[in-house]
């Protein structure tokens, strides 16, 4: 049975990198005695894949991983078992059966992500934020130099910004393209926003929380974003 697990990563767990979160779950799943399936061959490993690696320093309300079970277990029971053996800061909040097949893998499905960026105490930039956001959204094209491991190229990031607004408590909410087809990081949007206002962002100013990951369940013409967890079914 293929299962999607949702968990939050908060507090001090933000210092644990992606590969170590994977190791964490490999051990937690054993401690919780969840009967997970393994790959075949001489060095079998757990069948487990993550929707989207989260960088060190970021927190999240909704990370997703897909696993394969040898013996099914009820959602409620699995969530309780994993949280009972878990470390402070990682909380499993969802456990759903999802359809088989490569096209249904969380990693393949990711199309967008929500973020909230806060400014660390004393590092609030000296600009009119709402005016800057408005000016940003008014552009039809925002060419930005994007660095990758191999090269640096100019990309128009405007179409990858689906939503951008100030929240009631002065933070910035972003809904951005995410995944293999198009991927935009919130830091880059924020840096660009400040550059457009002619301001250097204060160093180490952003505190970023990822709030949700979405699949695009639209018809290809129109985007329709559905949280990855909503594609599964509770196991009773």
């Amino acid at each position: 049975m293929k299962v999607r697990v949702r968990f939050s990563k908060q507090g001090n767990m933000k210092y644990i990198g992606h590969l170590d979160v994977m190791r964490y779950f490999q051990k937690a799943i054993r401690r919780a005695r969840i009967d997970i399936a393994y790959t075949e061959g001489l060095s079998p490993h757990m069948i487990m894949s993550f929707a989207s690696p989260l960088g060190v320093g970021l927190t999240s309300d909704a990370e997703y991983m897909d696993i394969e079970l040898r013996t099914p277990i009820a959602s409620r029971e699995a969530i309780d078992a994993l949280n009972r053996v878990g470390a402070e800061g990682i909380t499993v909040t969802g456990f759903w059966e999802v359809p088989e097949g490569k096209a249904n893998k969380a990693m393949t499905l990711v199309a967008a992500a929500d973020y909230v960026v806060r400014f660390r105490g004393g590092r609030v930039p000296d600009i009119d934020l709402s005016a800057a956001l408005e000016a940003f959204l008014a552009q039809s094209e925002i060419p930005v130099w994007k660095k990758s491991k191999k090269s640096e190229r100019e990309v128009d990031i405007r179409p990858m910004v689906y939503e951008l607004r100030q929240t009631d408590d002065g933070a910035v909410f972003l809904k951005l393209a995410s995944g293999s087809a198009a991927n935009l990081k919130p830091e880059l949007v924020m840096d660009t926003l400040f550059a457009m206002s002619g301001v250097e962002p204060p160093p180490f100013a952003y505190e970023i929380n990822r709030c949700e990951l979405y699949a695009d369940t639209g018809d290809g013409e129109r985007r329709s974003l559905t949280p990855l967890g909503a594609l599964g079914r509770e196991i009773l």
Partner: peptide, 10 residues
């Protein structure tokens, strides 16, 4: 490796 200094391990 900041995780060296945060404790909180199982």
């Amino acid at each position: 490796k900041p995780a060296r200094y945060i404790g909180g391990e199982t």
